[in-house]
């Protein structure tokens, strides 16, 4: 009933503009539409990586916690190494660091000529290499989130500026410059900024959060490496 009565009103009185979202997107100029599509894709990817990183980092955190508890509960290093080798597909980063260091340590110790310092140094290098690999895995895609957070507002702004330029160019053909002549154009242009911000804000928040989490994990890994080197050092001198 409402649209019907709308349609029958005097034309001079009501400038009825359908400002619903779909018509806005449909009537936007191609550049604005392209910008919005790009931003939508970018936003989708950034959300995908946000969830993936979130799961990944949370899992890395719990695994690290678990392994630290196992390690410091005083269980045998050989048994720990065996379980790490056996469950290679489900081990955490810290467990892999430990596995690499211990394997190197055992390998060097089997050689007769090895001196204690060389044994610990080799294990340390192996652990460091694994540590870097693990850090790289944890930090993967974080740079994507960072660039989405910093760039997508500008892309959205580009779409908006372009759309508003378009709207005002249309205004020059009209005798009477009314707000109603430019309002739809500006509204649809602003949608581009909205999508850009929608992509950027979660990306920035997630990036900061994940970078902080990864930093804390790396700190834990490094301190574990130092402590484990000490343990290996003691063992090498004991033999």
């Amino acid at each position: 009933m409402a649209p019907d009565s709308d349609g029958h009103r005097e034309n001079g009185m009501n400038v009825t503009q359908d400002l619903s979202m779909i018509t806005l997107l449909w009537n936007a100029s191609p550049v604005v539409q392209a910008v919005m599509l790009l931003l939508l894709v970018v936003s989708f990817m950034s959300w995908y990586f946000i969830f993936r990183k979130w799961f990944g980092i949370r899992r890395a955190g719990t695994q690290t916690e678990q392994f630290e508890r196992d390690f410091w509960s005083g269980s045998d290093l050989g048994a720990l190494y065996q379980s790490a080798v056996n469950h290679r597909h489900s081990t955490g980063s810290l467990e892999r660091v430990f596995e690499a260091g211990f394997r190197e340590f055992v390998k060097v110790r089997t050689q007769r000529s090895a001196d204690p310092a060389a044994m610990v140094d080799g294990a340390r290098r192996a652990m460091r290499a694994t540590y870097h690999r693990e850090m790289d895995r944890l930090e993967a895609h974080l740079s994507f989130l960072a660039s989405v957070g910093s760039v997508s507002p500008y892309v959205g702004l580009l779409g908006t500026v372009w759309g508003i330029m378009h709207a005002f160019r249309g205004l020059s053909n009209v005798q009477q410059a009314t707000l109603a002549a430019v309002a739809p154009g500006i509204a649809e242009a602003l949608v581009a900024t909205a999508i850009g911000l929608f992509a950027a804000i979660p990306a920035v928040v997630a990036y900061n959060r994940f970078a902080h989490d990864v930093d804390r994990l790396s700190l834990r890994f490094e301190s574990f490496m130092e402590e484990f080197s000490n343990i290996l050092n003691r063992q090498s001198h004991a033999k």
Binding site: F44, W47, I50, F55
Partner: peptide
């Protein structure tokens, strides 16, 4: 690398929610 599929599903869900909010809200 965990949760590739759940992440995709969740990301889709977030965007569907966004579209719904935009369309109905506006």
């Amino acid at each position: 690398e965990p949760g590739a599929l759940p992440s995709a599903v969740l990301a889709t869900g977030v965007h569907l929610a966004l579209v719904a909010v935009l369309v109905f809200g506006v």
